[in-house]
Write a protein that binds this DNA or RNA. Structure first.
Lengths: 324, 324
DNA sequence: CTGAAAGCGCTTACAG
DNA sequence: CTGAAAGCGCTTACAG
């Protein structure tokens, strides 16, 4: 029922070859013939079926993106960076999630193995790294978006400067005259936690380091705990903005003024960082840029440019607002 | 270089037809033969190229999702609902965004016209509706996810109860003894704004209605304005959680206690609603469920079940926390 | 400048 | 139970 290249050829009185030629605007075709073919194409509303083109050419012009979850607060930014870049290159974007557990992972690897995409972008939880590495080994070009500062990705990747970011936070707090910082980290199993802490420490030795989850709750609990213990601190470095938001809330509940009594610095620069009270000073992670850069790298790889061996690093920067 | 069905057939000493049969587990194949073929498949690591299967079968087993932006706070939830459902059905998910303006839209319609997907899920800004309707007219099954309460989508859609949601907010504020509500709405061009207002009004006539954007800023400005004008209000119904967050902040800055002096109800139930101070009472929009339901509807449609004519409605519900 | 033919990697009547 | 052949809708040497 849908119109094919044969229909166009017949109507225009030429061969499929010729139709293909005017479609792909490569070889020379007689101007009059081309015009006639174009007319028929328009009249019939013909659009070449991409699947057939792909099979004939052997490439899908599709890039896949794998992400553990798409509901994380900064994931939208990464995804948008990827989507914009991929689309600008005329590629389609396929999205996979590991929301459904092992079944999801199986679905994902099956699709990639079946070559639905020419290349793969992935944000990979540590435990899924082997599966992705295996796909790469079997020939799918992969670029990792490294959200957690993995030590040796062994695959081309795009990361950011967790250590320098920690240092930026420390230097800023020192510059505004703080000397007794409380540091609230995420789970130490994430590489970024150690790195941020290390960078911070170089600039400003912490009075106390408390570990927790990357949640608002952790920020609240940590500050309440420190207060209850009578810890003497004049600053908080939170390992993400949600922890920072919790800290702000606990400080206010305890009657401490921010930034006068306690200065607070977060990490990430989520949209909500603008609307905490006071607005949060934070270390911005360039999530959208990272997504875009990873996509560019991959697309360049698909175009023939060899993928880099190590990690492309896009620096964090400090966004100074009102909390420190 | 990659192994094909012919390689398997040759190695196993059978025809491609037979290999295809054991692959698709339909017809009967001699047990011993099947076993041999399976061995060869395993040994060679053969995975059928999905593109070729799709061309032969005439269906892509791919669903596309179109969204204006993927960075909106609730978009991740919708997307996750879609992704989980689509994946569970063994379909792949293709993602399109209109981030790049008209070029994006052109890219998107080109891909769909080229039949990269069997069906389409879309969150559509009013101005893009004609383009999507045209794709539907040309034969692509479409289900809309209606975030803004469009009047007559003219296409199958999944929506929520904006009017009833407004009524839930009003009824709750009345139940907690409020009688002079300030309502802060989003832009009236969105159908949902009128509907939420109408539902609210049935339960509790507003003292004042202020229009703005769906932003924290609007919430702050509106409350400051009302306060400056000496408006006497004991409640705020904000048309989304971000407006509510701004209202909370302005109220606190003005020394008003929430919920004692002023009770505040939001709309959406974003993750941040848990961590405002006080935690926000709000009307939950079932975004993930809407995404999942839209995907189910579409997949059923692809399976032969006729798509419903009108709108599938998934109700909002009131989440009572501390702000009202 | 143009076309017949082979090929991309599968599936599916059809015949045996 | 099995295979030869045609077909899905394109592209691309090859020959003219």
């Amino acid at each position: 029922m849908p119109v094919t290249i044969s229909d166009v050829a017949r109507q225009a009185g030429v061969s499929k070859t010729t139709v293909s030629r005017v479609l792909n605007a490569g070889a020379d075709v007689d101007a009059a013939t081309a015009a006639r073919v174009r007319e028929v194409i328009a009249a019939l509303g013909y659009v070449p079926r991409l699947g057939a083109v792909q099979l004939a050419r052997g490439r899908s012009r599709t890039v896949a993106m794998f992400a553990p979850s798409v509901t994380w607060p900064w994931m939208g930014e990464v995804l948008q960076g990827v989507a914009d870049t991929v689309e600008a290159a005329g590629y389609a974007l396929m999205l996979f999630t590991s929301g459904g557990g092992p079944a999801s992972m199986a679905h994902f690897t099956a699709q990639v193995s079946a070559r639905v995409c020419d290349g793969l972008l992935a944000i990979v939880p540590e435990r899924c790294l082997p599966a992705v590495a295996e796909l790469a080994r079997r020939g799918t070009p992969v670029v990792l978006i490294d959200d957690h500062g993995h030590r040796r990705p062994a695959l081309p990747s795009v990361g950011t400067t967790n250590r320098a970011g920690g240092a930026q936070a420390g230097a800023h707090l020192r510059a505004v005259g703080r000397s007794r910082p409380l540091v609230i980290t995420g789970p130490p199993r994430f590489g970024c936690v150690g790195q941020r802490l290390e960078g911070f420490r170089e600039q400003l030795p912490p009075t106390l380091v408390l570990e927790g989850e990357f949640t608002e709750r952790t920020g609240r609990d940590a500050v309440e705990h420190a207060l209850a213990q009578g810890v003497d601190f004049d600053a908080v470095f939170a390992h993400n903005d949600q922890i920072a938001a919790g800290a702000l809330r606990a400080l206010r509940a305890a009657g401490r003024t921010v930034p006068d009594d306690v200065a607070v610095v977060g990490f990430d620069d989520l949209p909500m960082a603008r609307s905490t009270d006071p607005a949060l000073t934070t270390v911005r992670q360039p999530m959208r840029e990272m997504g875009g850069a990873a996509a560019s790298l991959l697309l360049a790889g698909l175009g023939g440019t060899p993928l880099p061996d190590g990690s492309l690093v896009i620096p964090t920067d400090l966004v100074v607002r009102d909390s420190a």
